[in-house]
Design a protein around this nucleic acid. Sequence first.
RNA 1: GCCCUGAUAGUGUAGUGGCCUAUCAUGAAGCCCUGUCGAGGCUUCGACCCGGAUUCGAAUUCCGGUCAGGGCGCCA
Length: 601
Amino acid sequence: MKRTHTCGELRSADIGKKVCVQGWVRFSRDHGGVEFIDLADAYGITQLVFDPEDISGGDRNSISEALRSFTRESAVSAEGIVRKRVKGTEDPKNKTGEIEVLITKADVLNRSRTPPFELGDQKESVLPGEETRLRYRYLDLRRPEVNEALRFRHRFVKAAREYLDKSGFIEVETPMLTKSTPEGARDFVVPSRVHPGTFYALPQSPQLFKQLLMVGSMDRYYQVARCFRDEDSRADRQPEFTQLDMEMSFVEMIDIQNMIEGLVAYIWKSLYNKKLETPFERISFSDAMNKYGSDKPDLRYGLPMISVTDIVKDAEYDIFQKILSKDGTAIVGFNVKHEIAGDKIGRNEVDRLISFVKSAGLGGMTWMRATKDSLDSNIVKYFTPEIISKLRERLDAKEGDLILMLAGPKKNVLETGGLLRSKLADDLELTDKDTFKFAWLVDCPMFEVDPASGKKDPFHHPFVLPTTPLDTENAGGASFDLVLNGIELGSGSIRIHDPELQRTVFKMLGISEERIDENFGFFLEALGYGAPPHGGIALGIDRLVSILLGKESIRDVIAFPKNKKAQSLLDGSPQKVDDEKLEELQIISMAIGDIDIEDIE
RNA sequence: GCCCUGAUAGUGUAGUGGCCUAUCAUGAAGCCCUGUCGAGGCUUCGACCCGGAUUCGAAUUCCGGUCAGGGCGCCA
């Protein structure tokens, strides 16, 4: 008999039906006569019962025989009659808990070896280490938590596709075997057999191809695009990851932002049936850096940095004087308000914060406590009443507030301040994981200048349209980031569509004419055929889904992720390949242990 | 390349120089039990990551390594 119902399907209304359910044996309870089996599949758990006093026409011996081979996690099939559970034994936690299936026929479909870990809905403390889970990922996937994460991800992507389809976007696949370019992240490289000694690269993003699609009049493109970067992993970075990649012609920045807000709101409605507040807050790059010390500030809480350089610059306090005597230095203050901190930050906690700041590279931290009408600390004696009163005003210091001050090179102060801010938020539990605060980072610069070498790097990427003349100091670029709870979800921009301007930008980035022609010649040529003004954005699907689910790592929302060292513990990749294969590709491995000097000679 | 944290039965853990022939739970095997639901009871099985050092004595201290995770660098 074929499966008639899944394990999450049967209800009181089905009582009396003859059914066949199939799934995995999760738990079984043998009472020496009556025996219960929790049969699990992706949809739920249904209780099977073998009752020696009521087998409803089945064969007692053959059922009993089959049940003996129902080892944990074996795939099994059971036919039987749906019946109401004995009064008082219903299981309210289970959606199928009002009924059970009285077995009339039982078969093992495929017996399971003893699983290396338990697959029930478990407490965190019983979960095995991640290494074991990844080694046996196919079993880990049977766990409801992981199973549901992938189903949630599916619904997310499905909603995105629906919205984009309704909005006139078409999904186009761009090549996986592409050209390696020297800028940016390291490429994964694929050798060509037909052209020995040459290599394709796996795409780091479909950037150039989606722009070419705009030249090709596709108008509105999207792709659930796999991207590859051969860089070290993090909790939120895998060697291969998925982006929701989009590009639009004849648009401005606001059009892309509006579209994304509509997209995210649509997804929100689909997943949570809730209205998401739009438009998202906008914060300029310079405000984000100056107030929050981050280009991806977490706006779920306040705690801004406030510059006090001008107020304390004349204080006769050696440490401040020494620091401010150098160029490019600054002093900022935090007011950790008494109403949010309470008495959680005492003397010991301040000492801990000071060592945190020191480990981040600053010399130290100055702190003071606001009293009724002054400030209290061992350095206040260096401050005139005027300075104290201005500080109180600037920082809005009220009695009981804790004032923290950081001094040093401006860049260092802002970055450390950003770290300190998020540490304070953690310590004071200011972040609520069920609050989702989207924001646009806008007014971004065109370039980042390396202070040591003076070399310009693109702030975003080299295809961003400048918004100011390129020779102005701090030239602006038409790029923007989508930020959620302190995490960057994606970057968008209006692109350059003029080939000459594009060439100029490449040159400003220090790329030689030869390299420009060699690497981007085809692209510049394409822009020369009436490329439309266009722009787009890409959102990291893994990141966004993992945040929505409150997961610590994007591995939790990827079916078969790699570990920290970019290996698959499941299939053992990457691996050596046979010598014959290498020969065919005319490749010699120079990895230690592979080199045989005599062979080479 | 660097920094931090960790590694004890299949799984999760306790154990900070002798109370360790290593704790507890879970699991597996076996037995008992007719209404459980991560059933219960009894019995049995099963482990100190590797190498070196210190010590009368090391799971425990030290050194080196391996593996895993987090971070810095890197990720235009």
